[in-house]
């Protein structure tokens, strides 16, 4: 379910790192909690954020939730497909439903994030 090579946050974001570029999205657990996603407000390319800062907003019909950036860095690409098809986040949260790519300014921050196993444990405890 949760890809082994991704890292996860307590706020239910995931990040996949290739070189010094990380791709960020929200987890399957998060999209299920939110229900039908109707809109994703993305950052702009070149915007810079500190780890944990609010970087995007994901909206369902009855809720709007902030998305925090898992690591510090500069946004280098956004998923423009989400503009017309926000349902991608529901359909393929760990793949086509990615939000944006970030150039990591401090890769050591990755060490603070959860592994897939840890995250699965975490959501189990949260569900209780």
């Amino acid at each position: 379910m949760y890809p082994k090579d991704y890292r996860y946050t307590e706020d239910h974001e995931w990040i996949k790192v290739e070189g010094n570029i990380g791709t960020v999205g929200i987890t399957d657990y998060a999209q299920k909690q939110l229900g039908d996603i109707v809109y994703v407000e993305l950052p702009e390319v070149d915007d810079e954020f500190e780890k944990g800062e609010e970087v995007a907003t994901v909206e369902s019909v009855k809720a709007a939730s902030p998305v925090m950036i898992p690591v510090s860095g500069k946004v280098v690409e956004i998923n423009e497909d989400l503009e017309d098809s926000p349902e991608l986040v529901n359909q393929d949260p760990h793949g086509k439903g990615w939000f944006f790519k970030v150039e990591l300014s401090d890769p050591s921050e990755l060490d603070d994030l959860m592994t897939a196993e840890q995250y699965e444990e975490y959501i189990k405890s949260e569900g209780e």
Partner: peptide
């Protein structure tokens, strides 16, 4: 529609 902009959902934001 587009209620997620509004105070009853987004509160202080």
């Amino acid at each position: 529609t587009l209620s997620a902009r509004e105070q009853h959902i987004k509160r202080e934001r």
